[in-house]
Design a protein around this nucleic acid. Structure first.
Length: 308
DNA sequence: ACCCAGGCATTGG
DNA sequence: CCAATGCATGGG
């Protein structure tokens, strides 16, 4: 058995950075959501570095306006290279490099958004580790309640995700596309996915493994180019593509039109509760452009915390 | 027992 | 081109 190393590193996010809110958004403000846990002020995630699995434990070592994160890594024979890569991954997962100031300037212009900016001051936007992860999570969540989606996500992760034990606990990373591809739509169907979604998820694994598609290399493309590429995949519509822009690519001006919950929260906060359609959501959203991603996440934070 | 939930592709007019 | 339909499942 290989020896387990324990190394530490520090991360300095761009201020303001509220660690509890940002990690909490990742876990839907619960102690565990999918691959992520948040307990006793410590955010944990198992990082899949390819050749080894490393458990990252992150806690705040600063304040919202002078933020610092203390990162502890556990894994077999950790090299300095491993530490650098893991630090980079955690920085991306927690969106530490985002500058919230331009969005806050826009957001303070209207009363409702101004309230959210105050309430969630320092919330950065967490990211997924891969585009594949964002797409699969979005597809699983299509049309069903978040509580059902959560059960299915956990089942998929614990069935197909790489796992490792640390201090008597088992941790899971998000399934690799290879594992899903090696499965079958029929097997996925037994895991509470619809037959359709089983085909979508299996197909997404195949597309990710097909390097000519370039799913994990979207960085050089414009938003519309990314949307076009993603919506060409079966199971990926505009809503899913926009969430991928937000969660996986980190683009600042995406908007998941078609989202039922988004319509509801916009209706409540900006239309006196009157029902609204996507066209109205889009019109209202323009006041936050080019930072509609931030606006979207702050609106969803309102839902996830059960506020309002 | 019903109805709905952070959509999507498919089908039929 | 637009409207209607089925989908799996847990919670209200």
């Amino acid at each position: 058995m290989m020896a387990i190393d324990r190394l530490t590193a520090t991360i300095q996010p761009v201020a303001p950075f509220n660690f509890e809110l940002t990690a909490g958004y990742h876990t839907y403000f619960q102690s565990r959501y999918g691959t992520d846990t948040m307990e006793d002020g410590i955010y944990r995630r198992l990082l899949d570095l390819g050749d080894k699995l490393v458990l990252a434990s992150v806690r705040s070592a600063g304040t919202v306006d002078a933020p610092e994160l203390a990162l502890e890594l556990q894994g077999p024979e950790l090299s300095l290279e491993n530490v650098d890569l893991a630090t980079e991954r955690i920085s991306w997962l927690l969106g530490v490099d985002q500058d919230l100031a331009p969005f806050y300037e826009l957001g303070r212009a209207d009363e409702a958004m101004s309230g959210l900016v105050d309430e969630f001051y320092g919330l950065h936007l967490p990211h997924t580790a891969t585009v594949f992860e964002a797409l699969v999570l979005a597809v699983l969540g299509q049309q069903i309640s978040t509580s059902v989606a959560r059960i299915i996500r956990t089942l998929l992760i614990e069935t197909f995700g790489p796992s490792a034990d640390f201090d008597g606990e088992t941790y899971y990373a998000f399934p690799r596309p290879e594992s899903i591809w090696a499965s079958s739509p029929a097997e996925l169907h037994t895991m509470k996915l619809t037959q359709r979604k089983s085909e979508y998820v299996h197909g997404l694994a195949g597309s990710t493994l097909d390097t000519s598609v370039g799913l994990e290399r979207l960085g050089g493309l414009t938003d519309p180019e990314i949307v076009e590429k993603l919506t060409a995949l079966r199971g990926v519509g505009l809503w899913t593509a926009q969430w991928a822009l937000i969660r996986a690519v980190g683009r600042p001006d995406a908007l998941p039109l078609g989202d039922l919950a988004l319509r509801r929260v916009v209706s409540r906060l900006f239309m006196d509760g009157a029902e609204c359609n996507d066209a109205q959501v889009e019109e209202i959203s323009m006041r936050w452009s080019p930072y509609r991603t931030f606006a979207t996440v702050y609106l969803f934070s309102e839902l996830r915390t059960g506020a309002g």
